[in-house]
Amino acid sequence: MKTEVSNPGIEKRKSKLPFKSGALQQILAFSSLIVLILFFSITSRNFMEFSNIMNILLSTSVIGILALGTTLVIITGGIDLSIGTAMTLCSVMTGVFITFLGLPIPIGILLGILSGGLSGFLVGSAVAKMKIPPFIATLAMMMIAAGLALVISGTRPIYFSDTPAFTQVALGSIIPGIEIPNAVLIFFLMATIGYIILNKTVIGRYTFSIGSNEESTRLSGVNVNRWKIIIYSIAGLFTGVAGVVMAARLNSAQPALGMGYELEAIAAVVIGGTSLSGGKGTMVGTVIGALIMSVLTNGLRILSVPQEWQDVVIGIVVIFAVYADILRRRNT
Protein backbone atom coordinates (compact mmCIF):
# COMPACT_ATOMS: atom_id res chain seq x y z
CA MET A 1 0.00 0.00 0.00
CA LYS A 2 2.12 2.81 -1.23
CA THR A 3 -0.62 5.32 -0.83
CA GLU A 4 -0.90 4.95 2.91
CA VAL A 5 0.25 7.80 5.05
CA SER A 6 1.07 7.69 8.71
CA ASN A 7 -1.11 10.58 9.66
CA PRO A 8 -4.55 9.56 8.55
CA GLY A 9 -7.40 11.96 8.35
CA ILE A 10 -5.14 14.95 7.99
CA GLU A 11 -3.31 14.41 4.74
CA LYS A 12 -5.28 13.48 1.67
CA ARG A 13 -4.14 11.05 -0.94
CA LYS A 14 -3.38 12.57 -4.28
CA SER A 15 -5.90 10.83 -6.45
CA LYS A 16 -4.92 9.70 -9.90
CA LEU A 17 -8.19 11.06 -11.21
CA PRO A 18 -9.53 14.51 -10.43
CA PHE A 19 -12.82 12.99 -9.25
CA LYS A 20 -14.16 10.00 -7.36
CA SER A 21 -14.44 6.82 -9.38
CA GLY A 22 -18.24 6.95 -9.52
CA ALA A 23 -18.20 10.40 -11.01
CA LEU A 24 -16.57 9.40 -14.29
CA GLN A 25 -19.73 7.93 -15.73
CA GLN A 26 -21.60 11.06 -14.73
CA ILE A 27 -19.07 13.31 -16.41
CA LEU A 28 -19.27 11.11 -19.46
CA ALA A 29 -23.05 11.40 -19.47
CA PHE A 30 -22.88 15.14 -18.95
CA SER A 31 -20.43 15.66 -21.81
CA SER A 32 -22.58 13.48 -24.04
CA LEU A 33 -25.51 15.75 -23.24
CA ILE A 34 -23.48 18.84 -24.14
CA VAL A 35 -22.26 17.23 -27.37
CA LEU A 36 -25.82 16.30 -28.31
CA ILE A 37 -27.07 19.82 -27.62
CA LEU A 38 -24.23 21.32 -29.68
CA PHE A 39 -24.85 18.89 -32.51
CA PHE A 40 -28.56 19.63 -32.71
CA SER A 41 -28.08 23.39 -32.37
CA ILE A 42 -25.77 23.31 -35.38
CA THR A 43 -27.87 21.00 -37.52
CA SER A 44 -31.18 22.61 -36.74
CA ARG A 45 -31.99 26.28 -36.37
CA ASN A 46 -35.11 25.70 -34.31
CA PHE A 47 -33.50 23.52 -31.70
CA MET A 48 -32.20 26.24 -29.43
CA GLU A 49 -35.38 28.27 -29.46
CA PHE A 50 -36.83 28.95 -26.01
CA SER A 51 -40.10 27.24 -26.83
CA ASN A 52 -38.30 24.11 -28.01
CA ILE A 53 -36.15 23.98 -24.92
CA MET A 54 -39.27 24.25 -22.77
CA ASN A 55 -40.74 21.53 -24.91
CA ILE A 56 -37.81 19.25 -24.18
CA LEU A 57 -37.98 19.98 -20.46
CA LEU A 58 -41.72 19.45 -20.39
CA SER A 59 -41.42 16.09 -22.09
CA THR A 60 -38.64 15.15 -19.69
CA SER A 61 -40.68 15.92 -16.59
CA VAL A 62 -42.88 12.83 -16.23
CA ILE A 63 -40.27 10.22 -17.17
CA GLY A 64 -37.74 12.22 -15.18
CA ILE A 65 -39.78 12.16 -11.97
CA LEU A 66 -40.40 8.43 -12.39
CA ALA A 67 -36.68 7.90 -12.97
CA LEU A 68 -35.73 9.88 -9.85
CA GLY A 69 -37.85 7.68 -7.62
CA THR A 70 -36.73 4.48 -9.18
CA THR A 71 -33.09 5.52 -8.83
CA LEU A 72 -33.47 4.87 -5.10
CA VAL A 73 -34.84 1.40 -5.74
CA ILE A 74 -32.14 0.57 -8.28
CA ILE A 75 -29.37 1.67 -5.90
CA THR A 76 -30.63 -0.87 -3.35
CA GLY A 77 -30.00 -3.48 -6.02
CA GLY A 78 -33.70 -3.80 -6.83
CA ILE A 79 -35.78 -2.91 -9.85
CA ASP A 80 -39.28 -1.51 -10.17
CA LEU A 81 -41.25 -2.40 -13.30
CA SER A 82 -44.53 -1.20 -11.84
CA ILE A 83 -43.84 2.53 -11.98
CA GLY A 84 -45.28 3.05 -15.47
CA THR A 85 -48.72 1.62 -14.87
CA ALA A 86 -48.71 2.65 -11.20
CA MET A 87 -48.27 6.20 -12.46
CA THR A 88 -51.34 5.74 -14.65
CA LEU A 89 -53.26 4.38 -11.70
CA CYS A 90 -52.30 7.49 -9.73
CA SER A 91 -53.58 9.68 -12.60
CA VAL A 92 -56.85 7.77 -12.55
CA MET A 93 -57.14 8.01 -8.77
CA THR A 94 -56.55 11.76 -8.98
CA GLY A 95 -59.36 11.88 -11.54
CA VAL A 96 -61.59 9.86 -9.26
CA PHE A 97 -60.95 12.15 -6.29
CA ILE A 98 -61.30 15.42 -8.17
CA THR A 99 -63.80 14.74 -10.95
CA PHE A 100 -65.89 11.85 -9.59
CA LEU A 101 -65.88 12.72 -5.89
CA GLY A 102 -65.52 16.47 -6.34
CA LEU A 103 -62.83 16.87 -3.70
CA PRO A 104 -60.84 20.12 -3.68
CA ILE A 105 -57.91 20.03 -6.09
CA PRO A 106 -55.10 20.09 -3.45
CA ILE A 107 -56.68 17.22 -1.55
CA GLY A 108 -57.21 15.27 -4.79
CA ILE A 109 -53.58 15.79 -5.70
CA LEU A 110 -52.40 14.73 -2.25
CA LEU A 111 -54.49 11.56 -2.35
CA GLY A 112 -53.29 10.84 -5.88
CA ILE A 113 -49.68 11.04 -4.71
CA LEU A 114 -50.44 8.90 -1.66
CA SER A 115 -51.91 6.16 -3.86
CA GLY A 116 -48.47 5.98 -5.44
CA GLY A 117 -46.93 5.67 -1.99
CA LEU A 118 -49.35 2.86 -1.18
CA SER A 119 -48.44 0.99 -4.33
CA GLY A 120 -44.75 1.36 -3.46
CA PHE A 121 -45.44 0.19 0.07
CA LEU A 122 -47.15 -2.95 -1.22
CA VAL A 123 -44.35 -3.73 -3.63
CA GLY A 124 -41.74 -3.05 -0.95
CA SER A 125 -43.51 -5.37 1.48
CA ALA A 126 -43.66 -8.13 -1.10
CA VAL A 127 -39.95 -7.73 -1.73
CA ALA A 128 -38.81 -7.33 1.87
CA LYS A 129 -41.22 -9.51 3.83
CA MET A 130 -42.35 -12.13 1.34
CA LYS A 131 -38.87 -12.27 -0.22
CA ILE A 132 -40.29 -12.15 -3.73
CA PRO A 133 -37.58 -11.07 -6.16
CA PRO A 134 -38.10 -7.38 -7.07
CA PHE A 135 -38.40 -8.20 -10.77
CA ILE A 136 -41.33 -10.54 -10.15
CA ALA A 137 -43.02 -8.51 -7.41
CA THR A 138 -43.00 -5.36 -9.51
CA LEU A 139 -43.94 -7.20 -12.70
CA ALA A 140 -47.03 -8.41 -10.85
CA MET A 141 -47.74 -4.91 -9.57
CA MET A 142 -47.33 -3.58 -13.11
CA MET A 143 -50.15 -5.85 -14.26
CA ILE A 144 -52.30 -5.21 -11.22
CA ALA A 145 -51.98 -1.43 -11.60
CA ALA A 146 -52.67 -1.57 -15.35
CA GLY A 147 -55.79 -3.60 -14.73
CA LEU A 148 -57.00 -1.50 -11.82
CA ALA A 149 -56.55 1.72 -13.79
CA LEU A 150 -58.90 0.36 -16.45
CA VAL A 151 -61.39 -1.07 -13.95
CA ILE A 152 -61.61 2.06 -11.84
CA SER A 153 -61.92 4.41 -14.79
CA GLY A 154 -64.37 2.15 -16.60
CA THR A 155 -61.79 1.97 -19.43
CA ARG A 156 -62.57 5.58 -20.40
CA PRO A 157 -60.43 8.67 -19.87
CA ILE A 158 -61.44 10.84 -16.93
CA TYR A 159 -61.48 14.51 -17.93
CA PHE A 160 -60.88 17.42 -15.60
CA SER A 161 -63.18 19.76 -17.55
CA ASP A 162 -65.06 20.84 -14.38
CA THR A 163 -61.84 21.95 -12.73
CA PRO A 164 -59.94 24.01 -15.28
CA ALA A 165 -57.45 25.05 -12.59
CA PHE A 166 -56.07 21.50 -12.36
CA THR A 167 -54.24 21.58 -15.64
CA GLN A 168 -52.35 24.64 -14.36
CA VAL A 169 -50.52 22.28 -12.00
CA ALA A 170 -48.46 21.15 -14.96
CA LEU A 171 -48.90 23.74 -17.66
CA GLY A 172 -49.27 26.98 -15.72
CA SER A 173 -46.29 29.01 -14.67
CA ILE A 174 -45.82 29.97 -11.08
CA ILE A 175 -42.92 32.31 -11.84
CA PRO A 176 -44.31 35.51 -13.30
CA GLY A 177 -42.71 36.74 -16.48
CA ILE A 178 -40.89 33.60 -17.47
CA GLU A 179 -42.89 30.96 -19.25
CA ILE A 180 -41.45 27.90 -17.52
CA PRO A 181 -44.22 25.33 -17.13
CA ASN A 182 -44.82 24.18 -13.56
CA ALA A 183 -44.24 20.57 -14.60
CA VAL A 184 -40.63 21.46 -15.29
CA LEU A 185 -40.33 23.20 -11.94
CA ILE A 186 -41.86 20.20 -10.22
CA PHE A 187 -39.29 17.98 -11.94
CA PHE A 188 -36.44 20.09 -10.63
CA LEU A 189 -38.06 20.29 -7.20
CA MET A 190 -38.36 16.51 -7.07
CA ALA A 191 -34.76 16.20 -8.24
CA THR A 192 -33.70 18.39 -5.32
CA ILE A 193 -35.78 16.37 -2.90
CA GLY A 194 -34.36 13.17 -4.33
CA TYR A 195 -30.85 14.54 -3.99
CA ILE A 196 -31.41 15.42 -0.34
CA ILE A 197 -32.95 12.04 0.47
CA LEU A 198 -30.13 10.16 -1.20
CA ASN A 199 -27.21 12.19 0.04
CA LYS A 200 -28.22 13.84 3.26
CA THR A 201 -30.58 11.52 5.07
CA VAL A 202 -30.21 8.23 6.84
CA ILE A 203 -32.55 6.73 4.23
CA GLY A 204 -30.01 7.48 1.55
CA ARG A 205 -27.22 6.03 3.67
CA TYR A 206 -29.10 2.77 4.03
CA THR A 207 -30.07 2.81 0.34
CA PHE A 208 -26.42 2.70 -0.67
CA SER A 209 -25.50 0.38 2.14
CA ILE A 210 -28.18 -2.20 1.27
CA GLY A 211 -27.18 -2.06 -2.37
CA SER A 212 -23.52 -2.33 -1.53
CA ASN A 213 -23.85 -5.30 0.81
CA GLU A 214 -27.25 -6.23 2.19
CA GLU A 215 -25.99 -8.95 4.54
CA SER A 216 -23.30 -6.75 6.08
CA THR A 217 -25.92 -4.09 6.62
CA ARG A 218 -28.24 -6.55 8.33
CA LEU A 219 -25.41 -7.84 10.51
CA SER A 220 -24.66 -4.26 11.54
CA GLY A 221 -28.01 -4.29 13.28
CA VAL A 222 -29.96 -2.41 10.62
CA ASN A 223 -33.55 -3.52 10.05
CA VAL A 224 -33.06 -4.02 6.33
CA ASN A 225 -36.62 -5.14 5.67
CA ARG A 226 -38.12 -2.01 7.17
CA TRP A 227 -35.82 0.28 5.26
CA LYS A 228 -36.51 -1.48 1.99
CA ILE A 229 -40.23 -0.93 2.46
CA ILE A 230 -39.59 2.72 3.23
CA ILE A 231 -37.42 3.11 0.14
CA TYR A 232 -39.97 1.48 -2.17
CA SER A 233 -42.70 3.63 -0.61
CA ILE A 234 -40.74 6.83 -1.26
CA ALA A 235 -40.20 5.71 -4.85
CA GLY A 236 -43.95 5.17 -4.96
CA LEU A 237 -44.58 8.74 -3.84
CA PHE A 238 -42.41 9.93 -6.74
CA THR A 239 -44.57 7.78 -9.02
CA GLY A 240 -47.62 9.46 -7.54
CA VAL A 241 -46.23 12.90 -8.31
CA ALA A 242 -45.51 11.78 -11.87
CA GLY A 243 -49.08 10.54 -12.15
CA VAL A 244 -50.53 13.88 -11.05
CA VAL A 245 -48.25 15.83 -13.41
CA MET A 246 -49.18 13.48 -16.25
CA ALA A 247 -52.90 13.94 -15.60
CA ALA A 248 -52.56 17.71 -15.36
CA ARG A 249 -50.52 17.87 -18.55
CA LEU A 250 -53.12 15.92 -20.52
CA ASN A 251 -55.98 17.51 -18.57
CA SER A 252 -57.25 13.97 -18.28
CA ALA A 253 -56.41 10.61 -16.78
CA GLN A 254 -55.73 8.23 -19.66
CA PRO A 255 -56.12 4.71 -18.24
CA ALA A 256 -54.57 2.90 -21.19
CA LEU A 257 -51.32 4.87 -21.06
CA GLY A 258 -48.26 4.13 -18.96
CA MET A 259 -47.06 0.71 -20.05
CA GLY A 260 -43.47 1.15 -21.25
CA TYR A 261 -42.81 4.30 -19.25
CA GLU A 262 -41.01 2.21 -16.64
CA LEU A 263 -38.50 1.02 -19.19
CA GLU A 264 -37.80 4.55 -20.39
CA ALA A 265 -37.32 5.63 -16.80
CA ILE A 266 -34.97 2.73 -16.10
CA ALA A 267 -33.06 3.59 -19.29
CA ALA A 268 -32.67 7.17 -18.06
CA VAL A 269 -31.34 5.93 -14.71
CA VAL A 270 -28.86 3.61 -16.41
CA ILE A 271 -27.66 6.25 -18.85
CA GLY A 272 -27.10 8.46 -15.82
CA GLY A 273 -24.56 6.02 -14.44
CA THR A 274 -26.53 4.21 -11.76
CA SER A 275 -25.50 0.59 -11.53
CA LEU A 276 -28.20 -2.04 -11.91
CA SER A 277 -26.25 -4.24 -9.53
CA GLY A 278 -26.80 -1.69 -6.81
CA GLY A 279 -24.67 0.37 -4.46
CA LYS A 280 -23.82 3.09 -6.94
CA GLY A 281 -25.77 5.97 -8.44
CA THR A 282 -26.66 9.63 -8.27
CA MET A 283 -29.73 11.79 -8.70
CA VAL A 284 -27.83 14.28 -10.84
CA GLY A 285 -26.90 11.43 -13.15
CA THR A 286 -30.54 10.45 -13.48
CA VAL A 287 -31.54 14.02 -14.36
CA ILE A 288 -28.85 14.07 -17.04
CA GLY A 289 -29.89 10.63 -18.26
CA ALA A 290 -33.51 11.72 -18.61
CA LEU A 291 -32.43 14.89 -20.43
CA ILE A 292 -30.25 12.91 -22.86
CA MET A 293 -33.24 10.77 -23.76
CA SER A 294 -35.56 13.70 -24.44
CA VAL A 295 -32.92 15.80 -26.21
CA LEU A 296 -32.26 12.86 -28.49
CA THR A 297 -35.93 12.26 -29.16
CA ASN A 298 -36.62 15.94 -29.72
CA GLY A 299 -33.55 16.59 -31.84
CA LEU A 300 -34.11 13.57 -34.04
CA ARG A 301 -37.73 14.61 -34.53
CA ILE A 302 -36.67 18.09 -35.60
CA LEU A 303 -34.29 16.45 -38.06
CA SER A 304 -37.33 14.50 -39.32
CA VAL A 305 -35.94 11.14 -38.25
CA PRO A 306 -38.93 8.80 -38.04
CA GLN A 307 -40.17 7.64 -34.59
CA GLU A 308 -39.05 4.04 -35.22
CA TRP A 309 -35.47 5.13 -35.78
CA GLN A 310 -35.50 7.30 -32.67
CA ASP A 311 -36.14 4.17 -30.62
CA VAL A 312 -33.28 2.40 -32.35
CA VAL A 313 -30.92 5.26 -31.49
CA ILE A 314 -31.96 5.35 -27.84
CA GLY A 315 -31.47 1.60 -27.59
CA ILE A 316 -27.95 1.97 -28.89
CA VAL A 317 -27.29 4.80 -26.43
CA VAL A 318 -28.34 2.55 -23.54
CA ILE A 319 -25.92 -0.15 -24.70
CA PHE A 320 -23.04 2.31 -24.85
CA ALA A 321 -23.89 3.89 -21.52
CA VAL A 322 -23.82 0.54 -19.74
CA TYR A 323 -20.72 -0.54 -21.64
CA ALA A 324 -18.94 2.62 -20.48
CA ASP A 325 -19.93 1.70 -16.94
CA ILE A 326 -18.51 -1.81 -17.34
CA LEU A 327 -15.26 -0.43 -18.74
CA ARG A 328 -14.99 1.92 -15.79
CA ARG A 329 -15.47 -0.95 -13.33
CA ARG A 330 -12.84 -3.02 -15.05
CA ASN A 331 -10.33 -0.22 -14.69
CA THR A 332 -10.72 0.28 -10.96
Binding site: V202, R205, Y206, F208, S209, S212, N213, E215, S216, T217, L219, S220, G221, V222, G279, K280
Partner: peptide, 22 residues
Protein backbone atom coordinates in the same frame (compact mmCIF):
# COMPACT_ATOMS: atom_id res chain seq x y z
CA UNK B 1 -19.25 -10.63 2.67
CA UNK B 2 -20.57 -10.10 6.17
CA UNK B 3 -18.74 -7.17 7.64
CA UNK B 4 -18.11 -4.39 5.19
CA UNK B 5 -19.67 -2.39 2.42
CA UNK B 6 -16.56 -2.49 0.27
CA UNK B 7 -17.64 0.20 -2.18
CA UNK B 8 -18.48 2.65 0.57
CA UNK B 9 -16.16 4.91 2.49
CA UNK B 10 -14.51 4.36 5.85
CA UNK B 11 -16.78 6.79 7.63
CA UNK B 12 -20.01 5.09 6.53
CA UNK B 13 -18.63 1.66 7.39
CA UNK B 14 -17.74 2.89 10.86
CA UNK B 15 -21.05 4.69 11.32
CA UNK B 16 -23.44 2.15 9.87
CA UNK B 17 -24.29 0.38 13.14
CA UNK B 18 -24.85 3.68 14.96
CA UNK B 19 -26.85 5.72 12.46
CA UNK B 20 -29.46 6.49 15.13
CA UNK B 21 -26.94 8.68 16.91
CA UNK B 22 -26.01 10.44 13.68
Amino acid sequence: RFGLMLDMDVKTNIGIASMDSF
